[in-house]
Design a protein around this nucleic acid. Structure first.
Lengths: 214, 214
DNA sequence: CGCAAAGATGAGTGGAGCTCATTAGAATGC
DNA sequence: GCATTCTAATGAGCTCCACTCATCTTTGCG
């Protein structure tokens, strides 16, 4: 049965879900087609089991690694970078998850779903750490930030997953972390700085006039 | 043929792509199955044509509306809000695009693909307007911002598209615009800037006192 | 009215997931 | 050491669904 799952993982990744034929998986695994259906209720369930096994492997050392990273900003960057890196290293499986698994009604009762929830929940927790430490403002819903992070990662890697073009996990992680962390705007505090600047400029002019008058 | 496309749009939206049977579409359209294949090379192409027609309708008044919105920030919010609203109003079609169409190899030669590119290109243009107007910093790649916007919208609406839960386009648009515009962080650069600002203010006060004293 | 061109028909085909009666092999009992 | 039972593997066949094609019908034109 482990043979079947190993072979199925290969064939699914190579050909995609619908072009991967059960007959082909059986042949490569050295069994006959019907044998697959002794262990799996159907092709869909086979994919689900394969992806679940893979995903558990991927997340195995995840918590330990995260525990080693200190500071809300670095932790946040790690989460983003990690997601980008997994996609970059294993595009086949990620394509299966994004294009097939998540579109199915069975998805919600999958451990992939549960583990993903856990994963994104950790992102919220890290953001909250930042709020508690006074590093991040809390006047916007953190859920939206999380959605923009995960959605952004997946949108950014979309072309790569189609086999068109590439992306750099490190650079993208830097940019996204920076964006989330410091934002894009010249925000209200800066207008305070501008006011101060104007006061100083006015003072400078007055001083210049008074020194010139002497 | 318009009948077939109208009926197909309905059935696809109701049942999803693979549960929508060609026989069913034909029956509801009052023709026989083979007739569909006189006008369309196959079921996939039928969906593509249906979605293309819909998408053109959706984007018909789009540019005109955008032209009516002034200011980079308001324009950006409009783009985000618009995307959210379309998803909220027509979940069936959006589900078909996100789950089926975009996963197919044919997608790239679709006008849906072209129009979407146009759509996101406009977002980059609006961001660039903000940079030119001095409203937005340009020291981070705008492509990443765009990816976080569109990815964020889709990630945020994902549960809704599955028929689980709901979301509020206006609130989400506000939050995302705010996030992109002013950022989240009381970040290191800003705390440094704040320290500098306090020193400058102190300096200004000293100078003001000394000039006043004369 | 005759004829040709275009359109519609529905029985039939092919392919892929899936089933099940049968067989082979292993474990257990006496 | 043979018989029995229980489990696993087999592969021919079934079903479902997209798709095809020879045939029939309607329309347009002289």
């Amino acid at each position: 049965m482990q043979d079947i799952m190993r072979v199925a993982a290969q064939v699914f990744c190579e050909k995609g879900y619908s072009d991967a034929l059960t007959a082909q998986i059986a042949a490569r695994a050295g069994v006959v087609e019907g044998t697959i259906y002794r262990y799996f209720p159907g092709k869909r369930e086979l994919l689900i089991r394969v992806v679940e096994q893979w995903y558990e492997r991927i997340l195995a050392d995840y918590d330990q690694q995260l525990r080693g990273v200190r500071g809300a900003r670095a932790r946040l960057r790690f989460l983003i970078w990690r997601h980008l890196t997994v996609i970059h290293n294993e595009p086949g499986m990620c394509r299966l998850i994004f294009n097939q698994l998540r579109a199915w009604p069975e998805y919600r009762r999958t451990t992939v779903f549960e583990l993903t929830r856990e994963y994104t929940r950790r992102t919220l927790a890290v953001l909250q750490e930042g709020v508690d430490a006074g590093e991040i403002r809390a006047d916007l819903p953190l859920r939206i930030v999380r959605d923009m992070i995960y959605g952004g990662v997946e949108h950014h890697t979309w072309a790569y997953l189609r086999g068109e073009g590439d992306f750099a996990p490190d650079e993208a992680a830097d940019a996204m972390t920076e964006l989330v962390y410091r934002g894009l705007a010249r925000a209200p505090p800066q207008s305070a700085a501008e006011a101060t600047l104007r006061r100083l400029e006015a003072l400078a002019q007055r001083l210049e006039r008074s020194t010139a008058a002497r």
